[in-house]
Design a binder for these strands. Structure first.
Length: 527
DNA sequence: GACCAATCCA
């Protein structure tokens, strides 16, 4: 059966689409946790390519249905997709959390290859993202009872990360303490490091330090533990605290290694202001001092150390120094990575030296290093600045033909959308938009904003309005300027019917999802 | 998963 035939079968069984898919309203579904021992039926292994999973996922999102009718549709079609594959696809796509949970429950109960701990971990991560921690815990308990090789320490790492990302640090620590009862052993240093690392990554260095001081006698802290804490304090720009832990580390008889020094180096360079030149000089001086200190201890700088310095050169627009350092690191036998090359290329491109940047791009290729989208985006930014349409289109076409590591990302599209919209080439904007939707990397809030602003500038009010409503439906909250520009345009050109439709839409959404839209004012606009 | 790159609409 062809995909289009399957699509029509599925559609026939589906309920009408929902009115909205915003995430802030997320009713807990009936999980049916009292599963009655009915052993899962064995199902054949996945036979279909991931394209089908992708298409199915899109269809599911589009209709947003309960899945019972779908099961028969799938059986009718004789297709058995791997549940894990569809689940992963759903979770990759934006705003599909509710659909993903329904699918997970359905697939679990119908044994479509969703019994593994991986699927549970994916779901728990997603539930944490939308703050449904009670449901996440239900799944953890279910994992335990079902014996699906979990929950594992990784499951708890995911849960802990989600708690911390939400700012619920106390609950994160409690979850960490609850882990022992599930995994059947005491947490070790690595687990402890995970907790501290996650706290520090999200800026809770103070909480991490408190936990560390309370428990450092229970776990044997190692180099990683201290490096994590030093990273945390550097991140919040508290260098004196970073130094304090460096000292404590040495006092304990632990030797700082190259990673520890790179963390300190990045702490010096990360947000240092480089304007005017004497500030740049001061930063470089401090960085060189640290490099000397580490070399004095017999630790040689590695790619990361060089990449950190190169990033400073790039931010300060010093192409000569950049190239010089790249050369000297190669002479020392240190192989540049994508990050290294991207920093230098960004520096050259932003200084207008596109030919030199292209040379480096070729050098990367001959060294077998695959450029990432960020590498190409440096060129696009410069083309944008020069209004070089041909250059941009040529590079874009080249990227489209490349492997998945180098295909355009959201930023690529956003740069190009902004460029061609400003140059008034709306056919190309349209084409880019379609490419972006097709490749499922976007659109994001910026893409919508760029497109709508572009359309407003061209006075294409009804098109702009259409995209405005689409973005609301997808759960993006448009900026105030976007709303006001559109509002003014619709009123001034007497498009009152379109305006009313837009107004109803916003009122409908804000009724359901609370105060999010309150900064839009509906006062009649004075002409 | 102890460190390095990465967007710019008013």
């Amino acid at each position: 059966m062809s995909w289009s035939a399957l699509t029509s079968v599925v559609r026939r069984h589906l309920l009408p689409p929902p009115k909205s898919r915003l995430l802030s309203h997320f009713p807990v579904p009936e999980l049916g946790l009292g599963f009655s021992g009915s052993s899962p039926k064995p199902s054949p292994p996945p036979l279909r390519p991931s394209d089908d999973a992708d298409a199915l996922a899109r269809l599911l999102i589009h209709h947003h249905n309960p899945f019972h009718p779908l099961e028969s549709s799938l059986q009718l079609a004789g297709i058995r997709l791997s549940g894990d594959l569809v689940l992963q696809t759903l979770l990759r796509l934006r705003h599909a959390s509710k659909v993903a949970l329904s699918f997970f429950v359905w697939a679990r109960d119908h044994a479509h290859h969703v019994h593994g701990a991986d699927a549970y971990d994916l779901m728990i991560d997603m539930l944490g993202k939308v703050r449904q921690f009670d449901v996440a815990w239900q799944l953890i308990i279910e994992m335990d009872q079902r014996g699906v090789a979990g929950p594992t320490p990784r499951t708890f790492a995911i849960l802990v990360r989600r708690y911390i990302a939400t700012g619920m640090t106390r609950q994160a620590v409690r979850a960490f303490d609850d882990m022992e009862a599930f995994i059947g052993r005491e947490p070790d240093v690595d687990d402890f490091n995970m907790l501290l690392d996650t706290l520090c990554k999200y800026g809770y260095s103070k909480v991490a330090t408190e936990i560390f001081n309370k428990r450092k006698f229970k776990y044997e802290p190692d180099e990683k533990t201290y490096t994590i804490l030093i990273y945390g304090w550097c991140k919040v720009n508290r260098h004196e605290m970073a130094q304090k832990f460096l000292k404590e580390m040495v006092d304990r008889g632990l030797e700082p290694n190259v990673v520890t020094y790179n963390v300190l180096l990045n702490g010096i360079c990360r947000r240092a202001s480089l304007h005017p030149d004497n500030r740049f000089d001061r930063t470089i001086h401090a960085a060189e001092g640290l490099l000397e200190e580490m070399q004095g201890k017999g630790i040689e700088p590695d790619v990361t150390s060089y990449s950190i310095i190169l990033h400073v050169y790039s931010r300060a627009h010093k192409p000569e120094l950049s190239l010089c350092m790249l050369r000297s690191m190669k002479e020392k036998g240190i192989c540049p990575t994508v990050a290294t090359y991207t920093s230098v290329i960004k520096c050259l491109a932003s200084c207008g030296r596109l030919e030199d940047a292209e040379d480096l791009l070729n050098e990367m290729a001959s060294n077998g290093i695959c450029p990432c989208p960020a590498t190409y985006n440096c060129f696009f930014k410069e083309y944008h600045g020069r209004k070089d349409v041909d250059g941009a289109i040529k590079l874009y076409k080249k990227m489209k033909g490349m492997g998945s590591l180098s295909t355009p990302d959201v930023h690529t599209f956003n740069i190009l959308l902004g460029m061609f919209s400003k140059l008034n080439q709306m056919e190309i904007v349209n084409e880019l938009w379609n490419d972006m939707v097709e490749s499922s990397v976007g659109p994001d809030l910026d893409s919508y904003t760029l497109l709508i602003h572009g359309l407003c500038e061209k006075q294409k009010w009804s098109e702009a309005c259409q995209f405005f409503m689409e973005m609301i439906e997808k759960g993006f909250l448009p900026q105030k300027v976007t709303f006001e520009t559109l509002y003014r345009g619709l009123i001034q050109s007497d498009m009152l019917r379109t305006w009313r439709r837009l107004k109803n839409k916003i009122e409908e959404e804000s009724l359901k999802f609370g105060s999010e839209f309150h900064h839009y004012h509906f006062k009649p606009y004075k002409r």
